[in-house]
Design a protein around this nucleic acid. Structure first.
Lengths: 146, 146
DNA sequence: GTCAATGCAAATCGTTTGCATGAAC
DNA sequence: GTTCATGCAAACGATTTGCATTGAC
């Protein structure tokens, strides 16, 4: 598990390297995602900031811009889930795939070595050099099966 | 491979059974999806209809309503595929996943029984009732590895 | 002082809804 | 004739953009 300060430091480096400016807002957004339990929508991030840092007066547009930026520099990842739109998570987490309830939107993370291995084999067979993958299983979670 | 007429017949039955009315519009939408190559967004379906059946004068709202209906009665399936929202595909197609070249955009379809099995097992372990899944491997294809 | 980032409001995009009209039964 | 489905336009929610201002460097 990577420490939050390390990621913030990483953000600082990236911003400097790109000749951009370091702002509190991007740091706040990243921090929210690092400490969040699950996956958050832009609006959820915004509301969390409003609650946890009511003095910050951040705008929703800034949240969207920060999320876009952080994803671009690979500090966070988004997954698309139909009804609720894009959800974001910090990349400090280990690689995993997602089980998504199409009724309530609940997301369960999982990881399966055998699947990962077979993915590599399929890639090799097709002469692809894999850079990443994305896998989502959609269904109805236990609670919603009633 | 299931024939298109069979699916249309199925639609006819469902509509009758529900005491609803059989309309050309729903048939057109279903037909587009049956004959489509990949997964289509609502807007893509709409545009295809405009191109293939310019005389039909269908409205975008009707396309959305038809897609919702067809999904509800299980003739088509929607998945959230990357950034551009919901995409639909006819349930007549055989299932497959995608290898995508991030350089040239080439898409190779594949299917791996072992992965499918393990996905089912993971779903079962988490008490999910799977309805669909989406898996993409991103990488560089052979031709682009130079 | 310069230039990127912000906050705000307006604009835009994809999708849904209300309603009068038209089509299926 | 009744009722459902349609087409249109208006409404909607989520996201993006334009622009004047602020803040990092």
């Amino acid at each position: 598990m990577i420490k939050s300060e390390e990621v913030i430091e990483e953000l600082r480096k990236i911003v400097k390297k790109k000749g951009l400016k370091y702002t509190e807002q991007r740091e706040i957004v990243l921090n929210i995602l690092i400490h969040a339990e699950g996956h958050l929508t832009a609006e959820e991030v915004y509301n969390l900031i409003k609650t946890k840092k009511p003095e910050s007066n951040i705008g929703i547009a800034t949240v969207y811009r920060a999320l876009g930026f952080l994803e671009e520099v690979n500090l966070i990842t988004s997954i698309a889930f139909g009804a609720d739109g894009k959800k974001y998570e910090s990349n400090t987490k280990e690689h995993h795939d997602h089980l998504i309830c199409i009724n309530c939107g609940r997301i369960v993370e999982f990881m399966d070595d055998e699947i990962e291995k077979r993915q590599d084999r399929i890639a090799k067979k097709n002469k692809f050099k894999i850079t990443s993958h994305s896998m989502q299983l959609y269904g109805i979670c236990e609670a919603c099966q009633n």
